[in-house]
């Protein structure tokens, strides 16, 4: 399982006009286990899922997300941002077993 976890990816344009809405799409490998399924010996598999996703731009808050176990495995997430300044978008994913991943992408505004 450990091999198939993490590897966060961001896809967004690298340039935008000032004031333009930019779409950011992201993907991370994670099993998003609900805690309700059983293994072969009939024992409950403990919940293991991403609980928060935080997006900031140049360190300033952009979007905060709280997830339940109902979010699908290998979560895909798309959101938007208004392009105002040059800078760096950073997204951080945290799970309930101290997993912590981040990804960054630069934007140039003209």
């Amino acid at each position: 399982m450990a091999d198939n976890i993490g590897n966060p990816m961001l896809r967004m344009p690298s340039t935008a006009k000032k004031g333009e809405l930019v779409e950011i799409r992201s993907l991370i490998m994670h099993p998003m286990l609900t805690g309700l399924t059983k293994d072969k010996s009939g024992k409950l598999i403990p919940a293991h899922f991403i609980q928060t996703v935080t997006a900031t731009f140049n360190g300033k808050p952009l979007l905060d997300i709280d997830w339940s176990t109902a979010v699908s495995a290998n979560p895909f997430l798309a959101f938007k941002m208004r392009a105002e300044d040059n800078g760096t978008l950073k997204v951080v994913w945290k799970d309930n077993q101290n997993g912590d991943w981040s990804a960054e992408s630069k934007l140039t505004v003209s």
Binding site: K60, L62, L63, V71, S72, F76, L77
Partner: peptide, 10 residues
């Protein structure tokens, strides 16, 4: 700063 309240997920 979001510009639009827009989300896509599964």
């Amino acid at each position: 700063a979001s510009g639009q309240a827009y989300i896509q997920e599964r």
